[in-house]
């Protein structure tokens, strides 16, 4: 390995970390809240932290500890985890074209770390700047999210009690702003705009649905709308 490729790898890794920083701010309060909730639900410090180390999926961890606290049977817990995480299969499929040629030793760990936040950051980067050396960028984003999640879980576990007002601090805005800034420039093509509008409407209508089904339904509605609009535009072009 030449020193030059070594430094460019480090540069890519650091860019991945840098582009993920706003997401870290947004995820921090959830890490703390998760830690406190896990203790309140009867998990030991070790199992609470262990869940963040091994599962590393915010929404499923929240639902998981509440089900464990309620003494839910294991098959129900696992089925719920499966449904809550279904959207990640869409991310896996969307990123495959960029990651096709990477070794399994890369693809397994990067898949383990594939969160909503890292998906948004990494997909944006690959689409706009190409995926050359992208494993290092993805790794940087992943390690930042992972380290951040573990750190704030430990903080929550050691506090062991809920902090009133933490959820209302509004730090999650950082995540919303980043998602908005990433998505807006994509909406200059009409089918993509249609996909976004359809997904937004379905997400609003489905807010009360359990298991993150609102997100899954919204994603499917958006993709379908985008495809139909694209088809329609193509047909009009051919007719003209």
């Amino acid at each position: 390995m030449s020193p030059q490729t070594c430094s460019s790898r480090r540069a890519l890794l650091l860019e991945g970390v840098r582009d993920t920083v706003p997401m870290l701010v947004g995820a921090a309060p959830f890490g703390v809240i998760f830690g406190t909730l896990a203790i309140a639900a009867g998990l030991s410090s070790a199992t609470a932290i262990g869940m963040s180390v091994l599962v590393f999926a915010g929404s499923s961890q929240f639902i998981g500890v509440s089900l464990i606290g309620a003494g839910t049977a294991l098959p129900v817990l696992w089925l719920t985890t499966f449904v809550v995480n279904l959207r990640h299969a869409l991310y896996s499929a969307t990123l495959l074209p960029f990651a096709r040629d990477w070794s399994l030793a890369w693809r397994w760990p990067l898949a383990f770390w594939l969160t909503d936040e890292t998906f948004a950051v990494v997909e944006h980067r690959f689409r706009t700047k190409g995926a050359a050396g992208g494993q290092w960028y993805w790794l940087g984003s992943s390690l930042a999210m992972y380290g951040n999640w573990l750190l704030w879980t430990v903080v929550g576990v050691s506090l062991g009690q809920s902090l009133p007002g933490l959820a209302n601090l509004g730090l999650d805005f950082a995540m919303g702003a980043t998602f908005a800034a990433i998505v807006a420039p994509q909406l200059k093509h009409r089918p993509a705009l249609g996909a976004a509008v359809a997904a937004g409407v379905v997400a609003m209508l489905g807010r009360g649905l359990p298991y993150k089904l609102d997100l899954m339904l919204a994603a499917l509605a958006g993709v379908l709308s985008g495809l139909l609009l694209e088809q329609w535009a193509r047909r009009k072009e051919q007719a003209a």
Binding site: R87, L90, A93, D172, V183, L193, A196, G200, A203, G226
Partner: peptide
């Protein structure tokens, strides 16, 4: 992936990100 699926996957990011952002804004 077949061609239609590749086209469909292009809409995953705008759809998912909007589904996350719109309820947070409104």
């Amino acid at each position: 992936f077949p061609e239609w699926l590749n086209r469909a996957l292009h809409y995953v990011p705008p759809a998912v990100l909007s589904a996350l952002v719109v309820p947070m804004a409104l």
